[in-house]
Design a protein around this nucleic acid. Structure first.
Lengths: 241, 241
DNA sequence: CAAAAAAGAGAGCAGTGCTCTTGCTTTGGG
DNA sequence: CCCAAAGCAAGAGCACTGCTCTCTTTTTTG
């Protein structure tokens, strides 16, 4: 099933790719709501019912596009991270944040598909979980680097949040202090809030120079996680073990 | 046109309200994408074409629902603010943030309609701007109170963001320091990022005790704007004029 | 080589937003 | 008061959607 050979199997993966390509084209041009199976089939010169041999429903096609979008975003973010490999954690953090923003502005409909409101009655299958985690994992990696190397300030953590923070740390990054993990998860959500607000027009008539505003706010987010902000000079090395 | 009298005019506003009510029901039950004009008409015992006398298109109906949703959210937030009128700015800030979150969890599809990805080719008309601003204005009011009264710390502001911060302050709140305005706008976006992530399932398998996590993060946001965080004791009164 | 699996084509169903025409009822000016 | 004008409901119809089912052709496989 997986590595079937023969002309038919080859044709199948080619047609599947062609369908996804055309669907992605329509998605980028018109948005997920206007993506039409019949239009995709028409454009590919096939009859609409034939398309159901490749994707059993419209939702399955969308799921494939969602996974691709997560992968594209994740890849872009990782590329930006590697391009900034020589710099310090703060610079790399900001580079990743800016890559996420850039990708969102370049692929608004794809961004809306993955971080906007879920479509109709759509519930994301588990297949989307690993690709969706890539950006988050990248942020964790940056913070982990800082924790093990140059130093990382510890955010404050009120007593009532400690149990939850420890739970999150155990699940996500047992090697990091719970307060750092909690702060990082918050920063992660806030980053996408920022991007979403700009992309979906909430900043119209409010923020003009969004580039500068975003860079500064991304730096503030890093600061909240414990990464040092330029002016503040070098932070203390992590005190505890 | 506006204050027309007579049975016909009265009937018109009643039917308009009935349509909106039924549409809101379907929106809450199924989401914006599955809201169908024909289904609304069917449920109201009228024929679909008759509905077009009240709303010239589906988008116009959605716009009406969007405005109502903004108003509902704004009203809820304002009520929460007044209920906490006796408390300090930080408590009021958190009360408003929690009211926003609560409303979002209680009205997920309506929240998605206004803060999720924009529907098909929909562009929000200017009519939606004032209701959309209510929550933002409320946050401004809280910070303004703190600025004039108990004191407000000044966030840092790098040189390259100063022009933009001053522009924002001039537009939005000329009586507040530019660094405060910039920080407030960022916090505003981050608040909705947090709510959206929880609502749209991004926190699944990540954050368990979302209530506590949210309250703490809302406090951190307030701190970023300059409102004092409990442990830190009273802040310095605003130094400059 | 024959049986089975896969693929394409076409018709058709139920649903959608929206338009247009046809009558009926309320409204307002002479 | 009455009658034209405007407002409204109803129905038919268009072009589109996702999806299913049947029928035929092609390819793979035991």
């Amino acid at each position: 099933m997986s590595t079937a050979h023969g002309a038919r199997a080859r044709a199948r993966i080619e047609v599947t790719a062609a369908i996804k390509d055309e669907a992605r084209r329509q998605l980028a041009a018109e948005g997920a709501a206007r993506l039409s199976l019949r239009a995709v089939a028409r454009e590919l010169g096939m009859v609409s019912s034939a398309l159901y041999r490749y994707f059993p429903s419209r939702d399955d096609l969308l799921t494939a596009l969602i996974i691709d979008a997560y992968d594209s975003l994740g890849g872009t973010a990782e590329a930006a991270h590697e391009a900034a490999a020589g710099s310090g954690p703060l610079q790399r953090w900001i580079a990743v944040c800016e890559a996420v923003r850039r990708w969102a502005l370049d692929h608004p409909h794809e961004y809306a598909l993955i971080y906007g409101s879920p479509v109709p009655g759509y519930t994301a299958p588990d297949t989307t979980v690993p690709p969706a985690a890539r950006v988050g994992l990248l942020l964790f990696a940056i913070v982990r680097d800082a924790y093990r190397g140059l130093g990382l300030a510890r955010p404050s953590l009120p007593a009532d949040l400690r149990p939850e923070a420890e739970r999150m740390a155990a699940d996500l990054a047992p090697d990091l202090p719970p307060e750092t993990v909690a702060a990082l998860v918050a920063a992660w959500a806030q980053l996408f809030g920022l991007v979403g607000f700009e992309l979906f027009g909430q900043f119209n008539r409010v923020v003009q120079d969004r580039e500068t505003f975003f860079r500064h706010t991304a730096g503030q987010l890093a600061h909240g996680v414990g990464l040092v902000y330029p002016q503040n000079g070098p932070a203390a090395r992590n005190p505890a073990s």
